[in-house]
């Protein structure tokens, strides 16, 4: 029995070392071609490839986040260096390990969580699976980037350009939006595992000297009063500042006949610019993030902003 145990331990130690070495190698590979990494791993590779300690505002969330927070508009108006680490249908576990990854090289002052993902509950099995898979991907990136070898064989695909995580959507699909926020006292329950990971996110931010902020961007399809009530309650309970833009849609100037690209689920560039203007003002008033526009180290951001302007003009025809 003792011998068997020793052998087993040795086997797994060697395996772990091998996986660790493979992870180091594949991470280096990913960093080298971060601009070609696609899909869910794109923001992970992207934030890792960013120059160290340059990002002041970090955003996590599902697709609502990267279609709403226009990083280049924040840059142009306030000189805020922001990065959106959003993923389509991001899970709270992914958000947590995304932040952990980001904190390795970045020291943002504000971390913003787009709240739509807080209501996502894929069921106990999927949850268990994600909760186990995410740390595995974090500690052994060979699991995260295992498909990277395909980039070496496949023909390069045309990439949609992204601007520090933000994606330009120019299409317009209108919707009736005005009445989706019907007042009620009821609350939609937040799943227990979401509370658990939100607490971990809060701790993580505290340890890294970042202030946590919860934000709900306007989305008739995803938000309603019950959810907002729950979020307000949660934010208050845990002492997290919370900005809901659904009830302030009028103040922000949302026009649902032209601000969404898919009928009230996600914002297009017009909607995103309105939301970003509001958000920028809020951040300026409450956090005083530094203006980096004249910092020589950030010259590439200015170049990117010019490219952004050109693409927006070209896509919207304005």
């Amino acid at each position: 029995m003792g011998k068997m145990l020793k052998k087993g331990v040795l086997f797994f130690t060697v395996l772990l070392v091998l996986l660790f070495l493979a992870s180091i190698w594949i991470s280096a590979l990913a960093a080298g071609m971060a601009d070609r990494v696609q899909g869910r791993n794109r923001p992970v590779a992207g934030i890792t490839a960013e120059e160290g300690d340059t990002v002041d505002l970090l955003v996590v969330g599902d697709s609502e986040s990267y279609t709403s927070v226009s990083t280049m508009d924040l840059w142009k108006q306030y000189g805020t260096a922001s990065y959106v680490c959003g993923q389509g249908g991001q899970r709270i576990q992914e958000a947590y390990y995304m932040l952990k990854t980001a904190f390795r090289t970045q020291s943002p002052k504000v971390v913003m969580v787009e709240t739509n993902m807080m209501f996502r509950d894929p069921g106990i099995f999927k949850n268990a699976q994600i909760s186990l898979a995410e740390p595995l991907r974090y500690y052994l990136p060979v699991f995260r980037y295992h498909n990277l070898w395909k980039l070496l064989l496949d023909e390069p695909k045309e990439m949609t350009s992204d601007y520090k995580g933000f994606v330009i959507k120019e299409k317009i699909t209108s919707c009736k939006g005005a009445e989706y926020m019907k007042e009620t006292g009821e609350m939609q329950e937040l799943p227990e595992f979401v509370r658990f990971y939100m607490r971990r996110i809060q701790d993580l931010c505290e340890r890294n000297g970042a202030q946590l902020l919860m934000v709900s961007v306007p989305s008739p399809k995803n938000y309603n009063y019950k959810k907002i009530n729950a979020l307000r309650h949660y934010a208050k309970q845990n002492g997290i500042p919370y900005v809901d833009m659904n009830l302030k849609a009028e103040e922000i100037g949302m026009d649902w006949s032209k601000d969404s690209y898919d009928g009230g689920d996600h914002l297009n560039i017009h909607g995103a610019q309105k939301v970003t203007a509001y958000l920028g003002k809020y951040l300026k008033e409450n956090y005083g993030l530094p203006d980096r526009r004249n910092d020589a180290a950030y010259s590439s951001w200015n170049t990117l902003a010019e490219k952004f302007d050109t693409e927006v003009k070209q896509k919207t025809g304005q």
């Binding site: 395996l15 091998l18 996986l19 493979a22 696609q38 899909g39 060979v142 295992h146 498909n147 070898w149």
Partner: peptide, 18 residues
């Protein structure tokens, strides 16, 4: 051989993103 098989599955299996 065991390690080769395990690593082959980890790297080449169709799982994860996409």
């Amino acid at each position: 051989a065991y390690y080769a098989l395990i690593l082959a599955v980890i790297v080449f299996a169709a799982y994860g993103d996409g």
